[in-house]
């Protein structure tokens, strides 16, 4: 293979053609049409094209990442405006190479700025903490949160709500993992947006429930009053947006990225915020998960049931033993409760 081999030049020419490179890495309809035709009219260049194509697909550059802990730690430092020590040093070191006079001025400046920094740090420590607020519930814990605009969020067990201490002028944006019920104060000029991992719900003033647990593999928005718009967090093929009316519920399934609209029983979906544990045709696995989350217990199943369960019932502020006793009334189970550990055996 000589250096002057024209095939090599064709490979280089093709690789430096951005449209070719993009076609190889992201073949879209239009580009595909163009390049298929190009191949037809340049059949002699096919070997070179294949080489160029394979190369573009195989080239992989080494990568370096921060760990998730580093990402969070860094964000914390940024929000509390902690200026990094090293980078500051780099600048001050540069000054040392100047004249002596400047050297003295620089060290004076350094002392001055570090005391200003200390003062500022103390002053902003509180301000920074209120900039973004994160409320987290443990298993078995439910909270009512008053949002800065007067809206109210009820946070179910094992959930997290993140929101700014003061909303911006144009948007009221909160982020949720888990489940929450929102009663939103009406303000048409400032839409209220709930972001979850895969969808966002936009409202003007209304009350609704959002459920998006990682373990669920589905996100559900249930509207009690008013009107909301739901859109995918990452818009895909076509622009998808759903408008819900009161009493309607939209379920987004992560497995196949589909949306399904249905009606719902208000008490079934929102009962939790008033301390009512609701089962509605709930199967065995979901029942166990519900109980663990609601009561903050660990349930060990020694023997799963031979036939699946369909549990129904509303339990208002009942202890776990009551609920298990009710289930025992219908299904043949044995259980022991010791602190936050439950052992369950089904027959």
């Amino acid at each position: 293979m000589s250096v002057n081999d024209p095939e090599e030049d064709v490979v280089v020419t093709l690789l430096s053609n951005k449209d070719f490179k993009d076609w190889v890495l992201n073949p879209s309809g239009d580009r595909d049409f163009y390049w298929q035709n190009w191949i037809k009219s340049n059949p002699d260049k096919l070997p070179a094209l294949n080489k160029a194509r394979e190369l573009a697909l195989q080239l992989k550059f080494n990568e370096d990442h921060l760990t998730p802990q580093e990402v969070d730690q860094l964000l914390g430092d940024i929000i509390s405006e902690k200026t990094s020590t090293r980078a500051g040093k780099a600048v001050s070191l540069q000054r040392h190479s100047y004249t002596r006079w400047i050297k003295i001025a620089a060290s004076l400046l350094l002392v001055l700025s570090s005391s200003v920094y200390l003062y500022r740090y103390v002053a902003t420590a509180f301000k920074a903490e209120v900039a973004v607020k994160k409320v987290q519930t443990r298993k078995g814990q439910r909270l009512r949160i008053d949002l800065p605009d007067g809206s109210v969020a009820f946070l179910n067990a094992g959930s997290t709500l993140t929101f700014p201490e003061a909303f911006s002028d144009t948007l009221r944006s909160v982020a949720l993992t888990g489940e929450a019920f929102f009663e939103v104060v009406k303000n048409p000029e400032k839409p209220f947006v709930v972001k979850t991992a895969d969808i966002q719900t936009r409202v003007l003033g209304t009350s609704f429930n959002v459920r998006s647990f990682e373990s669920d593999s589905a996100t559900a928005v249930s509207l009690v009053t008013g009107k909301v718009r739901v859109a995918p967090e990452h818009p895909s093929s076509k622009k998808q947006e759903y408008v819900l009316a009161a009493g309607e519920r939209l379920v987004y399934r992560q497995t196949d990225h589909t949306f399904e609209k249905a009606t719902f029983e208000i008490a079934d979906i929102t009962g939790w915020k008033d301390g009512v544990l609701v089962f509605s045709d709930t199967d065995f696995a979901a029942t166990i998960q519900r109980l663990e989350q609601w009561y903050g217990v660990e349930i060990t199943v020694q023997h799963p049931p031979s036939k699946d369960w369909h549990v129904n019932g509303h339990f208002e502020n009942e202890p776990l033993s009551e609920v298990l006793a009710s289930i025992q009334f219908v299904y043949d189970i044995k259980y022991t409760i010791k602190d936050s550990n439950v052992v369950l055996t089904c027959n």
Partner: peptide, 9 residues
């Protein structure tokens, strides 16, 4: 949104 002070942004 970020420029207008939206921390979530």
């Amino acid at each position: 949104a970020f420029r207008q002070g939206d921390e979530a942004a």
